[in-house]
Design a protein around this nucleic acid. Structure first.
Lengths: 238, 238
DNA sequence: TAGATTGTTAATCGATTAACAATC
DNA sequence: TAGATTGTTAATCGATTAACAATC
């Protein structure tokens, strides 16, 4: 059963690669719009902010879509990456939370463009229901299940305050959504078949602060007061 | 010069660990507010959504702050992680772009809270200048350099449309900012001493679409039509 | 002392990178 | 053919994980 098999073709693209494909795609689309027919791995890598070895390795997971001595056909590679990412079909997205963040998301160019369709923007606040945002009318949160079914929503976006997020997530999952993009600063609990990605503004800031502090340490001059090798030990708190 | 040295204490916390510290910190702060004095690695890991081996390994990079047989003192660990992340001092942040996203960021709880201070919210659009958002008056983009100097801004946040992002980034860098959080869908070019972190909404959606597609493939039944092993070859496009 | 839980070790896994043979 | 550039190999590096000795 779990015997070593000949391995059909090694499906499965590394996660790190998947996360970079959208970046390559964006660079390629810009090239396409400017009418550039082909691009080398060196040039494309530079535009995507990675080194060319990594780019070629990443693309090699999709197949051999380049031409030695020439480079990659821009249009062809746009198509191959789009297909790999699942952007040749349309995904229906529902956003919960019609505050500034939800509105920003609804208006965000990248959302409405190829591959995604915002099916609904919902909120619990009656005063917001009916507002028009990005060509949509804000709906009431109680219509969530109905919208998910009627519009075949496969991706739920949570742009609510932290306290509301888990409940909204549960409703998405209950309605059959298996991909969630969470902007609320909480760890969501979901069954294993559900994918959650998280965007956390304050975490990003904290990571920057960490590095900023390191830089500042250097600037303050070479003589550190001493490294806190022996901290005072667990303090109070019981 | 580059001779093998005794190694003072192996400074340098792995990036993957740094990125998780804010998550641990948030879970610990919640525990602290609920008056919990100590927590085991198992419990804290569960709340942070990681396994306990990883949590202990991560914390071990900061020092030995736990007690065998007991767990971690919540308050003490909050302090140690905060210090490591550089949150025991205040960082001044300037946000450029006072559209929905900029307003969402300015209003975001996690921003104003401990460790960060929003020094300014700027925009190029005269009609927005003077608007009050989250207790701030929107300023004009031309005051950027003055604000950075006067307020000692160390982190610049870019919440502008894509076309404006690189120019704003250049101004931040020119004014001496060395950490940038970018929400615009472009790859920013910066000198090596500048840290850029990027939050890209459409990239997150595309990564979800990739996985969603994989799940859908499975659902469609076991008989695939065939794997596109031999693609048609570079199509047209020149 | 017995039970609990940390901090560390070592094995494994996945990602990055440089180099270069293949080939247009 | 000569020059350019891909796709792949192999070495290296960093991250994850399970297991357990140390120790409260």
């Amino acid at each position: 059963m779990t015997r070593r098999e000949p391995r059909p073709r090694e499906r499965g693209i590394p996660e790190a690669t998947v996360a970079r494909l959208p970046v390559y795609l964006r660079a390629l689309q810009a090239l396409s719009e400017s009418g550039t027919p082909t691009v080398s791995s060196e040039e494309l890598a530079s535009r995507a902010g990675v080194n060319s070895a990594k780019l070629r390795k990443d693309l090699s997971h999709l197949g051999s879509y380049g031409t030695r001595g020439v480079g990659y056909d821009v249009g062809y590679l746009v198509y191959q990456i789009s297909r790999e990412l699942g952007l040749t079909q349309d995904w229906s997205v529902a956003i919960v939370g019609a505050g500034n963040l939800g509105r920003a998301l609804a208006n965000y160019g990248g959302f409405g463009t190829r591959g995604f369709r915002i099916a609904a923007l919902l909120d619990a606040e009656p005063a917001l229901v009916g507002d028009r945002v990005a060509g949509l009318s804000v709906g009431h949160i109680d219509t969530l299940e109905g919208v998910v079914e009627a519009e075949n929503v496969s991706i739920g976006v949570i742009a609510t305050p932290a306290q509301a997020a888990q409940a909204v997530c549960d409703r998405f999952v209950g309605a059959g959504v298996t991909s969630v993009l969470n902007f609320a600063p909480v760890v969501l609990n979901v069954p294993p078949e559900v994918d959650v990605r998280k965007v956390d503004l304050s975490i990003e800031l904290q990571i920057l602060a960490f590095h900023e502090q390191r830089k500042a340490d250097g600037r303050e001059g070479p003589e550190r007061i001493g490294t806190l090798d022996a901290p005072p030990g667990p303090a109070g708190g019981q």
